[in-house]
Amino acid sequence: MHWTHITDWDGAYSNLNHVPDADGYPPRWEADARSFRASLGDRARAGLAYGPGPRQAFDLFLPEAGPHGLAVFVHGGYWRRFDRSLWSHLAAGPVARGWAVAMPTYTLAPQARIATIAREVATAIIAAAAEVPGPIVLAGHSAGGQLVTRMVCGDEPLDEKTASRVSHVVSISGVHDLRPLMRTAMNADLGIDPAEAMAESPALLTPRPGTRLVAWAGGAELPEFQRQSALLANVWAGLGAATTSVVEPGKHHFDVIDSLAAADGALTRALTDI
């Protein structure tokens, strides 16, 4: 008989200690993102404000012709790190397939609670949707996976007009049940309490009618990320959503997003094939 029992909660969620050369990824992301922005020229619209805060802005990347619709990518970093400038290159795949891509920055913890961050992301999506007609597809990585799936819960912070345009959501290595994070040291910054965990965990909420979910994780991820991904697909399938769960062989938490940078990438197809 095999028992699953977590005793090291920080280790269970520490990608920095699990991924080889973890510290080398952010500089590479930043360089790739800068190069992609330069390659688009005036089709890269940077720093579009969606609110008065210093981090309340998004970048919008446009295809050569009129867009098929709007793809939104929400970055991770455990709600505590990073901004939109590191991820621009992940728009390359959807842009090459004719989609406009918005990438927002949001206020980080501990300056903002997760509930507040979710509402900022919703405001950013609404603002981007006003710029681009057509269907909307949402993708988020890690903490961003929680944020984009939160957008399609029954009490989602999106307005009805924008929510009705959302075709589907792709959560990449998402954290969908916040309760385990209350046992980690990072909760000193996040401040998750039982009430917020219940209110902001997509796995504990009901998806909006008609929701379609792709729950994606890497085969070389920490077990908790694979479990969290499969959990949401399982729970939401039982609540009426159309779900599919994908484990991409060999990918860890930091390279699982790579295929968004390619027009024929697996994640690009999952996001833009509607």
Rank of each mutant, 00 (worst) to 15 (best):
N234T: 15
H5D: 14
T123A: 14
A263S: 14
A65T: 15
P20W: 00
R183S: 13
R119F: 01
V214P: 00
H176S: 10
E248A: 13
P20F: 00
V74I: 12
S229E: 06
E131N: 05
L108D: 05
M103K: 05
N187L: 08
P133E: 12
A129S: 15
D258H: 11
E160R: 14
F36A: 06
A163S: 13
G238E: 09
I125F: 00
V214K: 13
G174W: 04
V101M: 05
P52L: 07
V121L: 06
L138D: 02
V166M: 09
S85Q: 11
H18Q: 10
P26V: 09
G154Q: 14
D59F: 03
G210H: 05
L90E: 03
T162L: 02
G144A: 06
F36W: 12
A12N: 04
D83P: 05
G76K: 02
I126E: 13
D83E: 06
C153K: 03
A261M: 06
T206R: 12
Y13F: 15
Y106S: 06
H252T: 11
Q228H: 10
G24P: 06
L48T: 11
V175R: 09
A139R: 02
R119P: 02
A263T: 11
P194G: 09
T184M: 10
A109L: 03
Y25F: 14
E120R: 12
G93W: 01
R55Y: 02
D258K: 12
V214Q: 09
D273T: 14
P26D: 13
W87P: 00
E224T: 14
Q56E: 15
H168L: 07
V19Q: 02
E156P: 10
A44K: 14
L147K: 02
S39W: 03
G210D: 04
L205M: 13
V175I: 15
P110A: 05
G140A: 05
G24K: 06
G144R: 01
T184C: 11
Q111Y: 07
P133M: 00
D10Q: 10
A270Y: 04
D42T: 13
M1Y: 10
Y13V: 12
S142I: 08
R84M: 02
A38V: 14
D83R: 08
Q228M: 09
D10A: 10
R45F: 00
G93S: 08
V166F: 03
V19P: 02
Q226S: 07
P94G: 05
L271G: 05
T162A: 04
Q228F: 04
A96F: 01
G76E: 02
A33D: 00
P180I: 06
Y25G: 04
P207V: 09
V72P: 01
P27I: 09
S245T: 11
G210W: 03
G210P: 05
D189W: 07
Y25E: 06
H176Y: 12
